[in-house]
């Protein structure tokens, strides 16, 4: 076991735990909000992380044995805790400034086409920019541009929006057979590509849509159907023939129509179990599914921010709303006024 202190909260974690995992444990146990944001790390996939640099933290004290601070910010997703380590994340202004810099870098070539992007509302980059970025841009040059590409008949690639997190590459490497998709070119010309635009044809290829933190890989069957916050997510399951697929999914419904099927995601925005393409793309009828009930979306995105809470409020279930920092606002009278809920 190792004792680690993150933002003045101490926790005992098993040896070999990453700083990020320890911070997430603290959040889960204490209801705090100190886990660094992640764009490329994915706990369900091996060798991810370390690329996006949004999860950097300051290590104030290396360990009990070697108390020297680490000279540079370290990526918390790929740095393991040591006994006696002291880490600063949200309590270090210098670090937050550095992270704002990383967010700025991620956004300078991003098209900011949220109004026409299917990912809007559940986009990690939106969350990141909102929570860790700064207002305005200092970038005054033409942004990098690529043409959108169809990867097969189900997946759309908008390379403009890609932040090169490599999650989809690792997904294809680890959960599909015969990877035909990877990164070509280098530097800021680098792009995700299938060789000679060969379609990804594999039972599990659709998962790249779920792991993509931005709107670079989107579901063509859901394209422009609805903004996500106008849909109702429900958890559902079916008996899937595919052995590797659990059949446990999340349906995004509007009325009685199933607009989209995705894997279920946990509070960190990571899928719980990968699902097969048949469940994802071919079963869009309510009768295909056994519906378990409304999904609990705790990830801090637009859909979670007010979506479920608002519905409960409208139903008069409760009079409080939980904010991003964990504190609760008492709504009292006028709870149904949207202006009050936005606070």
């Amino acid at each position: 076991m190792a004792k680690v202190t993150i933002d003045d909260i101490t926790i005992d974690v098993p040896d070999g735990t990453s700083i990020l995992a320890a911070a997430r444990m603290i959040d889960e146990q204490h209801g705090t909000n100190i886990a660094p944001p992640t764009m490329c790390y994915y706990s369900k996939l091996k060798t991810t992380g370390g690329y996006c640099r949004t999860c950097i933290v300051t290590v104030e004290k290396g360990s009990e044995k070697d108390p020297r601070p680490m000279p540079k910010p370290v990526p918390s997703c790929r740095t393991n805790v040591m006994d006696g380590m002291v880490v600063r994340n949200t309590t270090s202004p210098e670090l937050l400034e550095a992270r704002a810099g990383v967010v700025e870098f991620l956004l300078i070539n991003h098209p900011l086409d949220c109004p026409v992007c299917d990912q809007a509302g559940e986009c990690h980059l939106q969350d990141l920019g909102y929570e860790n970025g700064k207002e305005g841009t200092r970038y005054e040059f033409q942004r990098r541009e690529f043409e959108p590409i169809d990867i097969g008949d189900k997946i759309k690639l908008h390379m403009n929006r890609c932040i090169l997190c490599y999650r989809c590459v690792k997904t294809c490497e680890q959960i599909t057979d015969g990877r035909v998709h990877g990164v070509i070119n280098r530097g800021d010309h680098a792009e995700i590509s299938t060789y000679i635009e060969k379609a990804i044809d594999n039972d599990f290829s659709g998962n790249v849509i779920d792991v993509c933190p931005v709107g670079a890989l989107t579901d063509r069957t859901f394209r422009f159907k609805s903004r996500v916050w106008f849909t109702n997510p429900v958890d559902a399951h079916r008996d899937c023939n595919n052995e590797k697929c659990s059949g446990k999914t999340r349906l995004w419904m509007k009325g009685d129509d199933v607009l989209r099927v995705t894997a279920r995601k946990d509070r960190w925005g990571e899928v719980e179990e990968f699902i097969c393409n048949s469940c994802r793309f071919d079963h869009k009828k309510t009768s295909d599914w056994t519906i378990e009930g409304p999904s609990k979306i705790s990830h801090h995105s637009v859909i979670s921010q007010n979506h479920n809470e608002l519905r409960k409020l409208q139903l008069g279930v409760h009079k409080q709303i939980k904010q991003l920092d964990g504190t609760k606002i008492d709504l009292g009278e006028g709870a149904l006024n949207p202006n009050n809920i936005d606070k």
Partner: peptide, 14 residues
């Protein structure tokens, strides 16, 4: 720049 991590990929061009 290899384009792997964001600060270098975006910052060098900037």
């Amino acid at each position: 720049s290899c384009g792997q991590c964001s600060p270098c990929r975006e910052g060098t061009g900037w």
